[in-house]
Design a binder for these strands. Structure first.
Lengths: 226, 226
DNA sequence: TGGGAATGATAGTATTACTATTCTTTTAAG
DNA sequence: CTTAAAAGAATAGTAATACTATCATTCCCA
């Protein structure tokens, strides 16, 4: 059995550390499930409180509002992704092989496992696919960015961008390419399921995968001109 | 002076055609400006009604809700984009040149002009950049898709995907590539302005442009293996 | 045992999204 | 003209949401 891991997220993302109490853990655990079931718009702190048998203000004690809770969950997800990415590449030396493994981690759908206690990884993945962009597409981005709340996302992108630069130091857009790939990997999954005319990637059946598409895209993009 | 153009959008996007009355035109005109100023979340029909000197139910007479109004505006934008794209490529025969011109249209930021009466194109562009993904990232996508409300977006993607296939019939992911490019062109602009550590593209200053990044990306991606 | 901090519950408020109903104007027929 | 039907717009709601001020309880250390 693998060790349960604990990931750090920025303190400013919560008012009170939800991992420090039983109630806090329930809040995070059930928030993931309810966001997955209801979607971000229909999810409310009142419904969440009812479900875990507590009251609205108790939830507000942990998170300022639902937008911050979403940002907490996505930040946690990015940190977890970076951890998995480092784990997958730690013993690999050749730059191209490292990048290939990193891309495989970045673009592969998450299925359920139990490395993380009380976290439904598959549900969290679906929430990230459908709603992560809403954590920065709003009026307060600039203020939140000044507070450093997007650090884990930036760090992840930087890590992969550095791998690209190692493979081809002459490529001019490593960061833009990585952020495009990360967002596209979610988008293609969402399109395959809901707007299938926008992609060749298939939902839940045999067919070309997002991983194939994006891995091919990256290696062709950064290949030195021949 | 260029002819003012009129674009068709699906009838189901509105309850009553806003172009058919003075009030309807004001609703669309001011909605664009207010969405740009306030962002999608803070924008309400009440505020809009107040601004144009009418009442909430009068606005609801034209659009079912604010999500439909957003979808109307983005659909209109995609139709307009396709129109511009056809205009730019109509007299060009070589497949590669056509694709290059299409990508230039797709990825270039919109600046103000007066071809469209009562529409602030630059404001609409900013709204599309910041909020267009919210028109499909919600619970009702599947129902709205069944109603055909995403047709203009699909048609645009298909048009460009066909251009890619003409350049290289062997490329396996034309649609996925186009939807990635379209979304990325907005995202890179948004990141450049709000989260600049996620991209090499610069906001409002000299530096590599989104067009350069994405044009390079597409042509490298579809280049036949040498 | 008693005072303060931490936690939680009660009961609000302002705003939002939306609607049922009424009022007014326009139009069109007799 | 007159009047009746239809269309358009305004009034005045409601239920739900996002949050908060206040009050009550428990816990912990002195």
């Amino acid at each position: 059995m693998t060790q349960p891991i604990r990931l750090q997220v920025d303190e400013k993302l919560h008012l009170k550390d939800p991992t420090s109490t039983e109630l806090g853990q329930s809040v995070v655990e059930q928030a993931i499930l309810m966001l997955d079931e209801l979607g971000y718009e229909a999810f409310t702190f009142r419904k969440l409180a009812e479900r875990i048998g507590t009251t609205e203000p108790s939830v507000y004690r942990y998170f300022k509002n639902k937008q911050r809770l979403l940002l907490y969950l996505t930040s946690w997800y990015w940190s977890w992704m970076e951890y998995r990415l480092l784990l997958a590449t730690v013993n690999v030396v050749p730059a191209e092989a490292r990048l290939r493994l990193a891309l495989a981690e970045l673009t592969r759908p998450i299925v359920a496992d139990d490395t993380l206690p009380r976290i439904d990884e598959a549900a969290l993945y679906r929430v990230v696919v459908a709603d992560s962009s809403k954590s920065y597409l709003h009026r307060d981005v600039d203020a939140e960015n000044r507070e450093g709340l997007f650090r884990s996302y930036k760090r992840l992108c930087r890590t992969v961008a550095d791998m690209i630069t190692e493979v081809n130091p002459g490529y001019r857009f490593p960061l833009a390419l990585v952020s495009t790939v990360v967002e596209s990997s979610h988008m293609q999954k969402y399109f395959a399921e809901h707007l299938p005319r926008l992609t060749e990637v298939k939902h839940g059946q045999a067919g070309p995968s997002t991983s194939e598409f994006l891995t091919d895209l990256v290696f062709r993009a950064i290949a030195p001109a021949s």
